[in-house]
C-alpha cells in the first residue's frame, strides 16, 4: 500500500462522485413516485391493476439488477424497431439506460416497502378520518400516506443505501462514475487492490452520511414519539402504580 498513490487515486475518483449523485437522486426521485403508484395499484380492488403491479414487482425483485441493466442496455438495442422509435434518443445514451434500470428496480423494492407501510397504518386512524368525513383520495393524502411513509422511512433509508451501491454497476455500461474511473486507473497502473480500497471508502463515507441524514429525518418526523421533558419520571411513576 502506497499512501501517495492512494491519495492521488482519491483525487481522481472523487471526480466520479457528481455523476454518482445524479444517478442516485434522479433514480430515487422518479423511483419513489413510481413506487407509490405501484403500491396503490397493488392494493387496488381492481384485479387487473393489482395483478399487473404484482407482476412488475415479481420480475424486478426476482432478477439481479445487473441482468436488468444488460437487458435494457444491450438487449433493447438489438431490435431495429426500438432503434427507429421515439425512445431511441433516450435509450441510445448509457446515462438514461442506467437511470431507467435503476428507477424501475428501486420502484419495485420501494413499492413493497410503501405497501407494508400502508398496511401497517392502524385501523383506528382511518376510522377516525372517516368519522371526520374524509374519504377516498383525501383520506389517503391526509391520513394514510403520511403515516405509511413515516413507517416506511427506515426501510426506505436502506433502499437508498442499496441504490448508492447499485450505481457501481453503471460502470459496466461505459459510464464513468467512481467504479468506472477506478477501472480506468487500474487499466493504467494495474494496482487493483489499492484503487478498490479507495473507491470502497468513498462509497462507505457516502452511505455513512446518508444513514445519518435518514436518522435525522426520522427524528424530525416523529415528534409525537419523542419523550417530552420529564417523561422518564412519569413513566417510572406509572410503573409504581
Amino acid at each position: 500500500m502506497d499512501p501517495r498513490f492512494m491519495w492521488e487515486t482519491l483525487g481522481k475518483l472523487v471526480e466520479g462522485v457528481p455523476l454518482l449523485f445524479q444517478l442516485v437522486t434522479v433514480s430515487l426521485a422518479i423511483g419513489f413516485v413510481l413506487a407509490v403508484l405501484v403500491a396503490l395499484a397493488r392494493l387496488s380492488p381492481l384485479a387487473p391493476l393489482s395483478r399487473a403491479a404484482a407482476g412488475y414487482v415479481f420480475f424486478f425483485r426476482g432478477t439481479p439488477l445487473l441482468v436488468q441493466v444488460f437487458l435494457i442496455y444491450y438487449g433493447l438495442s438489438q431490435f431495429p424497431e426500438i432503434r427507429a422509435s421515439f425512445l431511441w434518443p433516450f435509450l441510445r445514451q448509457p446515462y438514461w439506460c442506467a437511470i431507467l434500470a435503476f428507477t424501475l428496480n428501486t420502484a419495485a423494492y420501494g413499492s413493497e416497502i410503501i405497501r407494508g407501510g400502508i398496511q401497517s397504518v392502524p385501523w383506528g386512524q382511518i376510522e377516525a378520518g372517516r368519522a371526520a368525513g374524509m374519504s377516498g383520495w383525501l383520506l389517503m393524502r391526509r391520513i394514510t400516506l403520511p403515516i405509511a411513509l413515516r413507517q416506511a422511512l427506515p426501510a426506505y433509508g436502506n433502499e437508498m443505501i442499496l441504490m448508492v451501491k447499485a450505481t457501481s454497476l453503471a460502470s459496466i455500461i461505459t459510464l464513468m462514475e467512481v467504479t468506472g474511473i477506478a477501472h480506468k486507473i487500474i487499466s493504467e497502473t494495474y494496482r487493483a487492490v489499492e484503487v478498490f480500497v479507495v473507491a470502497g471508502s468513498i462509497y462507505l463515507l457516502i452511505n455513512f452520511l446518508l444513514t445519518r441524514a435518514v436518522k435525522q429525518v426520522e427524528w424530525w418526523l416523529s415528534p409525537h414519539l419523542r419523550d417530552a421533558p420529564g417523561a422518564a419520571v412519569k413513566e417510572e411513576a406509572a410503573l409504581v402504580h
Binding site: 444491450y74 438495442s77 441510445r92 445514451q93
Partner: peptide, 8 residues
C-alpha cells in the same frame, strides 16, 4: 460491437 451496430 453491439453498441456499434446499434448506433450508440
Amino acid at each position: 460491437d453491439l453498441d456499434l451496430t446499434a448506433g450508440r
